[in-house]
Write a protein that binds this DNA or RNA. Structure first.
Lengths: 354, 354
DNA sequence: TTTCTTCTTGAGAGCGCTCTCAAATAAAAG
DNA sequence: CTTTTATTTGAGAGCGCTCTCAAGAAGAAA
């Protein structure tokens, strides 16, 4: 199975390289008879065009890159990235592209990666998942005018294309839900090093504002979206005696849950909890988490679609796509006490302290 | 910031394209004075070689592909893939390669993907994660003599290079642990559609053999590594009244745990449980899971290293690398009753049924 | 039949790089 | 001061494809 070239296929079919190229790429203006003959040779020989040569000649690699910066150690524990990647992969497949994955582990690697991406012609465009506020990546991309779309909010909005989920509304809904259930001391475990964290905190305060209430700074703790950080933040919060807590990620909520258990506080009886993401951890938790569902997979898919549009030269009208989120009510918020088998198991667990 | 070529850099430095190429690639036999002059021009202009052109000319893309076949829906729920990918990414970075990610969602996509990978010159080699017994991928790769290394066990061992963790020993250890603790009716939740599942079942039977005992088929249930399947398998098992169960993945163990909770069976008092993987779910579980730790990240890293060796023309002596695993004892097996705060929380939870 | 269109095909010039080979220059040897 | 050998450089031929451009074939119009 040696490698064939256009030239050789042409020879076999008795036509020129150019003609073979035309049938391979489905151009019009070919005599059906010839097209068929060439196609037969292609099928018989199993000819496949050399993508590298094609890219070089056409100045289009059809490769797009996905950049996952070093800040995102959560890759391990959080199903967020797999889910997002899944969506991106789907987008890539439906658009006949190839996905290059750039996972950066350290600052130096970041530098090296940027260099190997920019100006090398390897990728046509990029999807950047940086949610980090201090990110230097974006300006660099702009400087090299590398087409890209960012996932999550950006400090450079309006200049970059981005797709995001509606974090402000999401946490507004979560907080409002807690408020409407009558909880008085609603704490939050927020994050402060990333844009989505800011947005989620904004939603939290918005809900308070709507209810004519002000937030109590002592009921605000910070984590980094990781499990451990949720645990520690919750331990910090417990002495303040909150009766509910809005945790801005399910994974952190899992950590918080553990802290609560250790403190022998019952959820939701002693304290209600609402998470964010609606990823598998939300259902694995005990009790199952009331949380905010965001269409992560779709986010990835749309990011690709947007990038494709940009690359095709007809950029989308709007610079941003913000996807809707929804509140998913389960057991942990106390709105629903009984709920199939799971709820009864919870009952068993918690009766002890009743 | 328009794109420079070797030719232009050469013009600026007053040398030929070939010379610039030499300094870019660090070849010897260049007058230091010239090398320096050229280097300065490169630095000043920020010249970056076009990777596509280089690949075409050198017949080496320095891109390797990672194939995640459609069978692996577990991508969502299981941190296995992120972890593996992390290791592969690290390997790719240290070897100055680029990683292309091929995630396949359906059979047709699989076909399409194979075609777009094979014979297109895009990737120099592949890392294949298929653990599926019925996989048609491998023979195809061999037929096109595409260099690759497989992660996990293969039906075609001895012909392909592979790196794997020691599944047989792993489940042998897990089962033996249960046996040594004196459990009498040790069930297992296995999987039967993949190679690692076979190996893990073998380890289970090996341990029984060592203890001069035979396994009871009624105590064997099957899942697919997913959470739900663990739940259903456990429900099937409960009527057989096992006093311990070895679940061949932590994620399934989580599902099993839920079934047990619903049945108001206490872990480990009424039934002990041992998982496999030692991924985050093991620690998130309540009680925390005794499990088998396997070096997944390292598996990925070594797979890349192996592939690199193959590509360099000096293939490794051995066709397989099998990494050691270890037993991690936590609360779920009943070997350790008290164990920091977590254990006390468990105590609280389970007292109710005492 | 001749002339003008329209359709179909091939020739050939790149894309930006690598790499061989031979020319040119410098150093060593006779 | 030649001749031999080693070192440094440039010319040029690809890699396999795309794409423009013009030539040839065929059909329509005159």
């Amino acid at each position: 199975m040696k490698k064939l070239t256009l030239e050789e296929v042409g020879k076999l079919a008795g036509v020129s390289r150019a003609t073979v190229s035309r049938v391979v790429n489905g151009y019009p203006h070919i005599r059906p008879e010839i097209r068929e003959r060439v196609q037969r040779v292609i099928d018989e020989t199993g000819y496949r065009p050399n993508l590298l040569a094609r890219s070089l000649a056409s100045d289009r690699s059809n490769i797009i890159g996905l950049v996952i910066p070093s800040g995102a150690q959560a890759v391990f524990t959080d199903p967020y990235f797999p889910c997002l990647t899944q969506g991106i992969a789907r987008g890539v497949n439906t658009n006949n592209l190839t996905l290059a994955l750039f996972m950066v582990h350290s600052e130096q690697e970041e530098e090296r990666t940027i260099l190997s991406i920019l100006g090398t012609g390897l990728v046509d465009g990029l999807i950047v998942t940086s949610d980090n506020k201090g990110d230097v990546f974006i300006p660099e991309l702009v400087r090299h005018d590398m087409p890209f779309v960012q996932i999550g909010r950006s400090l450079y909005s309006n200049q970059v294309y981005r797709v995001d989920t509606d974090n402000v509304t999401g946490s507004y809904l979560a907080t409002k839900h807690l408020l409407s259930l009558g909880y008085q001391r609603i704490a939050t475990i927020a994050t402060n090093r990333n844009c989505s964290g800011d947005d989620r905190f904004t939603g939290y305060t918005n809900a308070f504002a709507e209810y004519g209430r002000t937030i109590d700074r002592r009921l605000v703790a910070y984590g980094d979206y990781g499990l451990e950080s949720g645990y520690h933040a919750m331990r910090q919060l417990i002495p303040q005696r909150p009766d509910a807590v809005f945790v801005t990620s399910d994974t952190m909520a899992l950590g918080a849950l553990r802290a609560l258990q250790e403190a022998e506080l019952r959820v939701p009886d002693d304290i209600a909890i609402v998470g964010y993401d609606d990823l598998p951890p939300a259902v694995q938790a005990n009790p199952q988490l009331t949380t905010i569902r965001q269409p992560i997979e779709q986010t990835g898919f749309l990011a690709v679609a947007t990038l494709v549009k940009i690359l095709s030269g007809e950029p989308p009208e709007s610079h941003e796509i913000v996807l809707p989120v929804e509140l998913v009510v389960r057991a942990s918020c106390g709105a629903v006490r009984m709920n199939a088998g799971v709820a009864s198991a919870q009952k068993a667990n918690y009766q002890v302290n009743a």
